[in-house]
Simulated scan of single mutants.
Amino acid sequence: MSANDHDSEVTATEMVITCRTAGCPHDGVPFTARMYPRPNPPVWAAVCAVCDQMVPDIVPAP
């Protein structure tokens, strides 16, 4: 499968992203975002826009 084939099959998913970095002003503050799964693990990956650290807490939105 080429990269273009993968892109045409993927749809966005509403996810809740919560930074857990100690000292970050957004530590514990959930944000909802539309995300696309990555073709390789980790499937869901995000970086906090405030502290620039990887966000470990990514779950589907209710």
Rank of each mutant, 00 (worst) to 15 (best):
T21P: 02
G23N: 09
V29E: 14
T18L: 05
P62I: 01
S2P: 09
V50G: 02
V50I: 14
M54H: 13
V16R: 14
T13E: 11
A49V: 15
Y36I: 05
H6N: 01
V55G: 09
C51Y: 12
T11M: 03
A22Y: 08
Y36M: 10
V29D: 09
W44K: 04
P30M: 02
A45K: 13
V43N: 11
G23D: 05
T11K: 11
V29C: 07
F31G: 07
A12K: 06
I58V: 09
E9I: 04
W44M: 03
E9N: 03
R34H: 00
E9S: 07
R38F: 13
H26R: 15
H6T: 00
V29G: 04
M1P: 11
D5P: 02
T18K: 05
P41E: 10
G23A: 06
M1C: 07
C51V: 04
D5H: 11
N4S: 13
V29I: 14
P25C: 10
P41G: 01
R20H: 07
M1D: 13
F31D: 09
V43Q: 15
V59D: 00
R34Q: 11
Q53V: 13
N40A: 10
D5E: 14
E9V: 04
Q53G: 09
P39N: 11
P42C: 07
A22D: 13
P30A: 02
T13V: 06
T18N: 08
P62C: 01
P56T: 00
T18F: 08
I58K: 07
A46R: 10
V43F: 13
